[in-house]
Design a protein around this nucleic acid. Structure first.
Lengths: 407, 407
DNA sequence: TAAACTTAATAAATTATTTTAATATCTTCC
DNA sequence: GGAAGATATTAAAATAATTTATTAAGTTTA
């Protein structure tokens, strides 16, 4: 791993971040990682221990000499509120610094589209959740929120949903809850999760496909989320892919989303069954969208031919889009993630088929397509990561005071 | 501009690079740029002056206090050999540290396709050019080469042309010339030129389209060329864009290159004229490809309807491809560069038309499409930049010795 | 099984960097 | 046009970081 240059004044918070991501590291390892001398690292670590952020966690195996003493974050030094939204529902969790929930993860219905009170509802949920679980707000480092739409993480504005009269959602929710808040596009948040704690762990260049009601793309470039100039990079759903394709909600024709998203698969399934196609999906045909989505993958796993046909068709089209992405970005790894990752195994073959057809062989040859193991938890974990990504020395100092007051 | 963290041991070479890119800077500016204290910067600058790399270049205008003393690279401290190749011909130049040629830029015919002796020819040209112009090899910092094909700049290998039995071209040419050599894909080299000395100067996120016999893409991300995992990123020519398009040399159908490259425009022009279309291009219809390419833009500038029709058609298709790029990368700036940049003005309208049709308005709204001013010189300048990008403390020390021996 | 070799942690000495203060030079505002 | 404020440079003092040496603790090999 490349050494990461940091300013001396940011060393301690950077070490804490690293320990959060890497679980446990020795001083020697940290020394190499940051390109700083051992005494400096030891001083920082000892201070972090004194301040209550870090603990010793025993010795690592020797690599031919004295065994190194490993350090890790103190899991309950701080908590993080992680929120994962989609168009239909919102999940809320509070996790510790090992990403373990310290209160039960809850899901609430929260329609984003044409819902003027969605933001107020969200804030209500947040405050109620904290209160109900009896968690001290002072212990919570911040709130990370992954949400669909055109989100500028830099400005804290979602241009599609949750309007706060043009104000920053980060500011608005901070004022309403007292907790530092960071919003970001759901796909970028999922990409964060996959790179820090998922199948793409520690990789510097990864493309993460968020298979959901739309089709999102979170990009990790040079080890960081790439957001583009306005923060809208990775708008994969609406690339013009098919000459005379289905009409998309965006008003255009031939968008990837309109041909291959989970929404389309569900709709095609309903329509097909109505027209007499046989499928075990028949029993849930009148269920709401969300349940139907879950059912698709259950039924696919049992080998239902109609559903597999639908998923294969979607997979092939996604594969064509991936071919374009590969030509432009030449990634090493592509991760299929999001709630649709469950169908990844079935889609793998048609995706590969499409790559064979649409990719220059040299580019497709070494590509590694992985299926997320975080699955549905990805967005929650990513939302927590989002808070830690914004952790800095200033917040370290604030929280040091808090811990010292408590003890 | 964001401060650039550098290791203390690399400060001097980084300062020199910065001065090369920015022409002239004061110590105070450098201090801010690198986040280092003034005494450190002054020490480094004074050493660089003593070593013969830097000179004082007078005072900058005051901004309300004592006028700062500006420093610049000593233009003839070192020379750089810059080589720009395309499939048909190769240009060679030697430039000083102000990118001014110190010997006449020469162009030689050098077919890359199916030419087993192309590499040997290239080396011959290099050595002959240096000899003919009587330039001391010890004065030349290195050779930068932009070339078409699948080029891995990291490995120094071009997988399409100029095979050195799988060896690194960097190594091979170094052995044959005694000069450190760096090869890279032509489009990435042009992107470097545009970002350092062109219309995209100092921008951190830029997409540079190389309009030539193919259609290349050089990406600047976080201020650096993005090359992807294998180094093949930006393979824009062969993205699958049209359902049943023309057959491409790559064997696939519907590639952008097969529909909109300069090669296609020239061929369509020839064919059209043969079939009776009226055009002032008629007089050069039997000229070789290269001349025909130049003629296209000359004729277009006079308002030739047929040629404008052809360029518009190509522009519209390029616009569709740009729409995809914009959806994925959300850049602030797109630069039309390469030898085809001459036609940029004519293509601008159809490109915008395509963006209106294929882009989500929010993404297309703020996009800035610029036409290169470096034009045909872009690849030469970029090749020189390529050498400076690889300049480090080690090379600084080597060249210090050289200068001291000479003086 | 002990000697030789590694690696880790700690302390002391050296080196490097930044901060502070002082001086020089220029602009702008009475 | 001179005084006050701003910026740049230089020198000295204070601070911080790294290097080197030392001790501790483990592995490998003869």
């Amino acid at each position: 791993m490349k050494i990461k240059l940091v300013k001396a004044s940011e060393l301690k918070s950077e070490i804490l971040k690293k320990l959060y991501y890497e679980n446990a590291l020795s001083c020697a390892e940290l020394s190499v990682l940051f390109g700083k001398s051992l005494p400096i690292i030891m001083k920082a670590i000892n201070e972090l221990i004194d301040e209550g952020f870090v603990v010793e966690v025993g010795y690592a195996p020797s690599s031919g000499g004295r065994r190194p003493l490993n350090y890790a974050v103190k899991a309950d030094a701080m908590y993080i509120m992680a929120i994962a939204m989609d168009q239909l529902s919102t999940r809320i969790a509070i996790v510790d610094l090992c990403n373990r929930p310290v209160a039960e993860v809850e899901m609430v219905e929260l329609l984003l589209n044409n819902n003027a009170v969605a933001l107020e509802k969200l804030i209500e949920y947040i405050n109620a959740y904290i209160l109900r679980n009896g968690i001290d707000k002072a212990r919570i480092l911040g709130i990370g929120i992954g949400m669909p739409g055109f989100v500028s993480a830099a400005d804290g504005i979602n241009y599609s949903y949750l309007d706060a009269n043009g104000q920053s959602l980060n500011e608005y929710i901070f004022k309403a809850t007292g907790l530092p808040t960071y919003v970001a596009n759901d796909s970028s948040v999922i990409a964060l999760a996959e790179q820090k704690f998922g199948v793409a762990k520690s990789q510097e260049e990864v493309m993460v496909i968020n298979l959901g009601w739309g089709i999102g793309l979170g990009m990790i470039i040079k080890g960081e989320v790439f957001r583009g100039y306005d923060g809208f990079a990775g708008e994969f759903s609406h690339i013009p892919l098919f000459e005379d394709g289905a009409l998309c909600i965006c008003g255009k024709q031939g968008c990837l989303e309109a041909e291959a998203s989970m929404l389309v698969v569900v709709e095609k399934a309903k329509e097909g069954i109505k027209q007499g196609r046989l499928s075990t999906l028949q029993s849930v045909i009148d269920d709401p969208l969300k349940l139907m989505g879950d059912a698709i993958f259950e039924v696919a796993a049992t080998g239902d031919p109609f559903v597999i046909e639908l998923l294969s068709d979607a997979g092939y089209k996604i594969g064509k889009a991936l071919a374009i992405l590969i030509h432009i970005m030449n990634p090493k790894t592509i991760v299929l993630s999001g709630r649709g990752a469950k169908g990844g195994k079935i889609m793998m073959a048609p995706i590969q088929l499409a790559l064979n057809k649409y990719c220059i062989p040299r580019l497709a040859a070494n590509i590694e397509i992985l299926i997320s193991e975080l699955g549905f938890d990805g967005e929650i974990i990513g939302a927590a990561v989002l808070v830690m990504e914004n952790f800095d020395q200033e917040k370290l100092i604030i929280n040091t005071k808090r811990i010292q007051m408590n003890i």
